[in-house]
Design a protein around this nucleic acid. Structure first.
Lengths: 333, 333
DNA sequence: TTGATCTAGAAAAACGTTTCGCTGTGTGGT
DNA sequence: ACCACACAGCGAAACGTTTTTCTAGATCAA
């Protein structure tokens, strides 16, 4: 442990050349170096099992070949997908990934961003915490390429889902099947995404003249009260359909239906959120909205790496369409 | 973008002191420096918004305050938990986390480990890929503290679940409820964990004289054939219980029961794997084995950071007990 | 043969820190 | 009043690279 590590100087010494030439052959630049010396260096490298010190290299060349990935919530069922995709994409360009999660805490986010800047990451992909303090993001973006995912931030390249549209079409779908007392259990409306979706749903309902604020309930971020709210909506409001804005809310609704012994979709139709494997296994299979999370992550990578290798990306928001996944719980066939 | 960043020299110059003293006050060492100068430096720092260049610092002090976290599969439902925990633990000690995933590919694992060593991470927590080539791990462990999770590797500190024991008790539980034709669908037996669990189950059954190899089936890593195998076991072998060794296999079994219209647990009892939120929502709720994944991650962190701040950890394997989560699918009341 | 031209490879500077060792000033003891 | 000592703060070296500059030997033309 903590033994001294072999440096390029050791290699050069063993090979009987200068460190300069050693460096040249190790990074095989297109400079010409005599085959004999080249071979000697390569042999020395192999013999000493030399591993370049990338932090020294980074200091000199001013790039770390590392990107930062900042997320708000690692246990959200969709994050692993984006992590995997970013990972893979980065690795293909020989970049490493520094991961951090903020748990929606802006202060934590600020120190994390600061730390990553100090660590001199070359670029940043992040899902900003839900908050309107973004000065640190703009500061970061003035130093390195930054792309925001999931939540748009002004003057920073962002790629997000079309929450309004997906909310509207999901609600419209339920309306088309004759539902009229459509309830919604949603997370706090501070979240722009939740709010947009809420608006989409409201507008769809209002267009059919059946928007009833009493049927729209707010839960906390983890959705712990979803079960109780669902019970209340079913028993006291006689809803004939329920929509959710998170996996955990979906689960709460399902549990409520189970306990109250209400038939899905005959008595209450259900529209879930996200598409997880288990949602096909419930009885009946759940209709949900598909989160194009991998699509988002891919675009984010493309934008980031384009900016990394050339000129900065335009700071515009890119909207990715999402789709309904119609199964049985919404009353389809 | 790419503007020049302010260095400690700028700070020193503005404050009218030498870089040496600037450094001293910035890292506030316990050396005494005149309050006046101290204030000047601090003001300069604030005014220039100086952010130390951590890669230069790392080069000098030979520590990066970064740990590597290498996982095999980010989409496994339990990994986010360990990621989160390691994250949190590391951040509390002001360490960053370099994340990489191997997808069970040893060659990829080798280059990742190599890359992390080159990046000079201070320590490594990793779930080794399923393979018997481990030279690179021992090499890594000779340089920095390494702790393996989930899969033990000889001569490296490891913390794992007791797969044999949990397999044995789960099978014993089914036996105690009168099941005799107990089937198992498992992932490839190369995996030590799967093998140990397999052995536990076999031994439990053998003790009651009802181990029948025909009821033990192997699927690939993603469990894609689980559905077909489950159908076959139910129809052709008349099993009265089925066990799984992964989430996806559990799902395959459930789907088979659904299609074949067999009653759980009356006709076939089911023992799942892992404990995910949705498993309470199936009909009936699933009995599973609990993976003490957070416990494992916590111990791994404790061991790693202990080694980081003092002498190397003993290279022993630590076994964390896991529990049965008895719900309804196994035939319990 | 000699001066000009080229180039392989060495020497040295630089990246931004930390830290060692030194200088020079101020204090206290005799 | 002088010497010894303490110590605040500075200069410079070092960390391990890359890259620019420089040197010296070889090649070529006249």
């Amino acid at each position: 442990m903590a033994q001294k590590r072999v440096t390029i100087t050791d290699v050069a010494k063993l090979a009987g050349v200068s460190v300069a030439t050693a460096s040249v052959v190790i990074n095989n630049k297109n400079k010409f170096v005599a085959p004999r010396l080249k071979r000697q260096v390569l042999e020395a490298v192999a013999q000493l099992n030399y591993q370049p010190n990338l932090v020294a290299r980074s200091l000199k060349v001013k790039e770390t070949r590392t990107i930062g990935l900042i997320l708000t919530n690692i246990t959200s069922p969709v994050t692993p997908l984006s992590v995997r995709l970013v990972q893979k994409y980065a690795r293909e360009q020989d970049f490493a990934t520094l991961l951090a999660v903020t748990e929606e805490d802006v202060n934590l986010e600020m120190t994390i961003v600061e730390n990553m800047l100090s660590k001199r990451v070359d670029g940043l992909i992040m899902c900003p915490a839900n908050s309107n303090v973004v000065a640190h993001l703009h500061y970061a973006a003035s130093l390195i390429p930054v792309v925001a995912i999931e939540r748009a931030v002004t003057d920073i390249a962002s790629v997000v889902t079309d929450n309004y549209e997906i909310g509207r079409t999901a609600a419209a779908h339920l309306l088309a099947h004759g539902r009229r007392r459509i309830g919604l259990i949603h997370m706090p409306l501070q979240g722009t995404n939740t709010r947009r979706r809420w608006e989409g749903i409201r507008d769809a309902l209002a267009a059919h003249d059946c928007f009833d604020p009493a049927l729209f309930c707010e839960t906390d971020y983890v959705g712990s009260s979803a079960y109780d709210l669902a019970c209340a909506l079913i028993r006291e409001q006689g809803v004939d359909a329920l929509m959710a804005t998170s996996q955990s809310i979906t689960m709460g609704i399902l549990r409520a239906c189970q306990t109250l012994d209400v038939c899905i979709p005959e008595e209450v139709a259900i529209f879930g959120y996200d598409d997880l494997p288990w949602m096909e296994l419930t009885a009946p299979p759940l209709s949900t909205t598909q989160q194009p999370i991998e699509h988002i992550a891919r675009r984010a990578c493309e934008i980031l790496f384009a900016a990394l290798s050339a000129q900065p990306a335009p700071a515009q928001v890119e909207v990715i369409a999402s789709r309904l996944l119609l199964r049985r719980s919404c009353g389809c066939s």
